[in-house]
């Protein structure tokens, strides 16, 4: 190595280290401030009661309505997106194997819709609701969030499925498996941990989004009671609480943010554990 190369290498190494720690520091500050402010206002009451005195001005009561609403909405949408998304991803990788052009067009379109901001999905959901004469409801929220996370779900599963080695596929075909057996028994098993990551990613996006549910799921002080009733969600309750002029109510927003962060953390840890269990049978090439 020449002297110039050495200096260059040092320089870029330093840059990478700085960038990495910069990002980590920012993350730490965000998480710290959520915890620091959230811990102060969080209480048993907040976790177990519905808001009192209205969600906008209310200092009393809790956010149980939003916790349960967000969980119902995110689990519903994630489940639905999974049920629709897995077959699509498998179809791309197993059944369309002889049509490379079609695959790349579909991938391109999915990447395109992945980039559409969630408010557009919200507006789309809303216009459909007007068309059908529906009111804001858990169902409308689930359907809209499903649409919104579907490209994320499909493409991230697709990225994993397309790493299944052709040699493994040949081995399975040579035994006389047909395409559905290859799809559901070989591709899914080989990709379990990646599929779980895809589901988790979609769940995180779904539960954290405010814009898609703003017009579709609505908001309410009540606990969720049925698919056709409006539900409260954590992102919206954070939004409303933060925009309150009352400092105490503003602080409650951090408590809500803390709860949202903890939900995502718990779901992540749980699915990591699940992924590890299946990781053992994966063949490493």
């Amino acid at each position: 190595m020449t002297r110039a190369q050495k200096i260059e290498e040092r320089f870029f190494k330093l840059l990478m280290i700085l960038a990495t720690y910069f990002i980590l520091a920012i993350l730490a500050v965000i998480i710290y401030s959520i915890f620091e402010k959230g811990i102060k206002s969080i209480s048993w009451e907040m976790l177990t009661q519905v808001p009192q005195g209205g969600y906008y001005y209310g200092k009393g009561g809790g956010i149980l309505n939003a916790i349960l609403g967000s969980l119902a909405l995110a689990f519903g949408a994630t489940a639905l997106a999974f049920i629709i998304g897995l077959p699509v991803a498998l179809y791309l990788n197993v059944f369309l194997i002889r049509h490379k052009k079609v695959i790349s067009i579909i991938r391109f379109l999915l990447d395109l819709v992945w980039g559409i901001p969630s408010i557009v999905y919200g507006a789309f959901g809303f216009s459909l609701m007007i068309f059908f004469g529906l009111q804001t409801s858990l169902l409308a929220g689930i359907l809209t969030v499903t649409l919104f996370i579907l490209p994320i779900m499909i493409r991230s599963m697709d990225e994993i499925l397309c790493t299944v080695p052709i040699g493994l596929q040949e081995a399975a075909y040579s035994l006389g498996s047909n395409k559905s057996e290859i799809a559901f028994k070989i591709f899914t098993r080989q990709s379990v941990s990646g599929i779980i990551t895809a589901v988790l990613l979609s769940f995180g996006r779904g539960i954290g989004d405010a814009a898609a549910v703003l017009f579709t799921a609505g908001y309410t002080d009540h606990l969720p009671n049925g698919l056709l009733e409006p539900v409260a969600t954590l992102p919206l309750s954070i939004f409303f609480q933060l925009s309150s002029p009352v400092p105490e109510v503003q602080n409650r927003a951090y408590a809500s943010a803390l709860v949202l962060t903890l939900i995502i953390l718990i779901v992540s840890l749980f699915s990591r554990g699940l992924g590890k269990r299946y990781h053992k049978t994966k063949i490493n090439f």
Binding site: G167, A171, S174, I186, R189, T281, I283
Partner: peptide, 20 residues
């Protein structure tokens, strides 16, 4: 699919299926 069952394949490197 039936036809392929008339032949067992052993490839250049082993590809066990992702199971026990």
């Amino acid at each position: 699919y039936k036809l392929r069952q008339q032949m067992g394949l052993l490839s250049q490197r082993p590809y066990p299926l992702p199971m026990t």
